[in-house]
Amino acid sequence: MPLRIKVRNAESGATVEMELEGENTIDDIIEGAAGYWEKDAGAYVLRRGRRLLRGQQTVAEAGILNNDELELIPDPEGG
C-alpha cells in the first residue's frame, strides 16, 4: 500500500506531498523534490528527524512511515 509523506524545502519552507511505494529509494525522493522545486543542479541531502538518509536505502529500509515529514537540505560544495 502506498505511503503519503511530506517533503519540506529547507531553503524556502515550502512543502510538497509525495506518494511512495516501499521499494522507492531516498534518491528517488530527492530527485522528485529537487525536480519539483526546479532546484539548481547541486547536491542535496534528505533528513528524517535528526538523521540523514542514505541515497540507496529504500523507503522501507529507511523506516519511513505514512505522514512522515522529511526535509530537503542543500549540501554546500564550495570552499
Binding site: 531516498i26 534518491d27 530527492i30 530527485e31 529537487a34 543542479a41 547541486g42 547536491a43 542535496y44 541531502v45 534528505l46 540523514l52 542514505r54 541515497g55 540507496q56 549540501d75 554546500p76 560544495e77
Partner: peptide, 24 residues
C-alpha cells in the same frame, strides 16, 4: 556545513553521499 569523521568509529563522507553528489 561541517562533517567530522573519526575512524574507525564514525561514518565517513562517502556514507553520506547520494545520486546528486555523483551527478556533480
Amino acid at each position: 556545513k561541517i562533517q567530522v569523521v573519526l575512524p574507525p568509529d564514525t561514518p565517513c563522507l562517502q556514507c553520506a553521499t547520494n545520486k546528486t553528489h555523483m551527478k556533480i
